[in-house]
């Protein structure tokens, strides 16, 4: 009985080794661990000596190229902006110059106009003064003529009424009346 149990236990252990979990078969652990360490060391050496520096360099290179291109593009953009500013400035200058010329021309023209106006005014004033003088002369002439006529008429009227009157008296009376 005892031996049978022993046999059974041994048999079960043997069966577990052959048909159980190969993962728990510790006789193969040494082999796996050895080859695993070899593999890891080889992969580590491949990666750290060759692959990682290379990939890192390529990535850094690409980042550098992209940064350079962006910087160049920025520079070009800056240049374009400068050119635009220069163009704007030239345009503004030209516009200011044109405005100045217009202003100057207008000032000159108005100056001329003013001078012409002043001259014309002067001539008109002279003519007006001349005409006034002529009118005053005419008026004075007219007054004198009226006095003469009035004196003559008065002398005639006095003589027609049969009175003899002296010329001085008549003249005095007429002129005092006219003045009054």
């Amino acid at each position: 009985m005892a031996t049978e149990t022993h046999d059974a236990v041994e048999g079960a252990a043997h069966a577990a080794e052959s048909a159980g979990m190969p993962q728990l078969d510790f006789s193969t652990w040494g082999n796996q661990i050895f080859w695993l360490i070899v593999t890891l060391v080889v992969i580590y050496l491949i990666l750290s000596k060759v692959a990682l520096p290379r990939v890192g360099a390529v990535l850094a290179d690409r980042a550098g190229t992209i940064a350079n291109n962006i910087a160049a593009a920025d520079e070009l953009k800056q240049k374009a902006r400068d050119a635009e500013a220069a163009y704007e400035k030239a345009l503004a200058d030209a516009r200011a110059e044109a405005a100045a010329i217009v202003e100057a021309t207008r000032a000159e023209a108005s100056e001329k106009l003013k001078a012409a106006t002043a001259k014309a005014d002067e001539q008109i004033a002279a003519k007006a003064a001349e005409s006034e003088a002529a009118i005053a002369e005419i008026r004075a002439g007219a007054l004198e003529a009226a006095e003469t006529v009035a004196r003559d008429a008065a002398a005639e009227i006095v003589s027609a009424l049969g009175f003899a009157a002296k010329d001085d008296e008549i003249a005095g009376a007429v002129s005092s009346r006219l003045k009054g």
């Binding site: 193969t28 080859w35 695993l36 491949i46 692959a51 990682l52 990939v55």
Partner: peptide, 22 residues
């Protein structure tokens, strides 16, 4: 063992991807 074989293939795969392809 077959462990050795498949670990070696792992190394080959790493070589192909990380060294040959780059």
């Amino acid at each position: 063992t077959n462990v050795t074989l498949w670990m070696a293939l792992t190394i080959v795969a790493v070589l192909l991807l990380m060294v040959l392809a780059t």
